[in-house]
């Protein structure tokens, strides 16, 4: 518990996490408002549509999570941390937990904020969250944000440099996973095993967010939504375990 308090003090005593959180919320909720305002009879507003830009927030939160580690390496405070807490693994787990919980909370704020603003803009649309698919789509956002923060902390710990870690995360999450689908024949099969695709499957499986034919073709995932979440969690936590082992062994 002490270590969690330590990491909480560290995180909230600098400005950049506050900026990242504010950016994640305004960006996503703002996009949701723009979408809601432009829906019509052909493209009607629904719970699913209001959630279609939560990825924006997730990317920003991943940057925040990576920064939480890389700035410690950049400024040497990681060494001060390891001097105060020689159990490096515990110290880094505490950091991961604090960042992941915060990311989860932001995820919920983003999801319900997007849903709320859409409801306000189009009060007549069917925005009731009344099926398990819709609940998963909205409330599940926090889980996805938390797990992607774990993944980002792991990458930050392995790479130790802000520029490198952020570049890897952005290029991978924004480009690699979607572009790999362009490889003929096998591209789609690879995509069906990529972590962020599964995160998305968890949020959107069985929901009719987009009308038939709009957006990228649906993938044939090996798991159902909760299986996809477990797969995403396994990859994030697995990468974290590797990062912790490396951090423990290497000279600080």
């Amino acid at each position: 518990m002490t270590l969690l308090a330590v990491e909480r003090i560290k995180l909230f005593s600098t400005r950049s996490p506050w900026w990242c959180m504010a950016l994640a919320v305004t960006l996503t909720v703002g996009m949701a408002a723009l979408i809601a305002a432009n829906t019509n009879d052909e493209f009607p507003l629904s719970v699913g549509v209001s959630q279609s830009f939560s990825n924006f927030g997730m990317i920003v939160i991943m940057v925040m999570a990576a920064l939480a580690v890389t700035t410690e390496y950049r400024f040497g405070t990681i060494r001060a941390t390891f001097l105060a807490v020689p159990g490096r693994v515990q110290a880094l787990i505490a950091k991961t937990v604090v960042v992941a919980v915060l990311a989860g909370v932001i995820g919920e704020v983003v999801a319900f904020g997007s849903w709320g603003i859409s409801t306000l803009i189009k009060p007549n649309a069917d925005m009731a969250i009344n099926s398990s698919v819709e609940w998963r789509n909205v409330a599940g956002t926090g889980l996805v944000f938390a797990l992607s923060a774990v993944l980002a902390v792991a990458v930050g710990t392995l790479v130790r440099q802000t520029a490198g870690a952020v570049a890897i995360l952005l290029v991978y999450a924004l480009l690699v996973e979607s572009l790999i689908g362009l490889i003929p024949k096998i591209g789609v099969n690879i995509q069906e095993w990529m972590p962020f695709m599964h995160a998305n499957n968890f949020l959107t499986a069985d929901s009719a967010a987009l009308p038939e034919g709009a957006g990228p073709p649906r993938l044939d995932f090996p798991f159902g939504p909760w299986g996809s979440l477990a797969y995403f969690a396994a990859i994030s936590v697995g990468l974290l375990v590797v990062a912790l082992a490396v951090a423990k062994k290497r000279d600080a």
Binding site: T2, L3, A5, V6, I9, K10, S13, T14, R15, S16, T71, F75, G76, T77, R79, A80, T81, A84, V85
Partner: peptide, 21 residues
């Protein structure tokens, strides 16, 4: 190394997290 501090964290906050640990 005296530079092992976060430049945007106050002196007191820096010592507070160290103390807490």
């Amino acid at each position: 190394d005296a530079k092992w501090v976060h430049p945007n964290r106050s002196a007191r906050s820096h010592l507070r997290w160290l103390a807490k640990s």
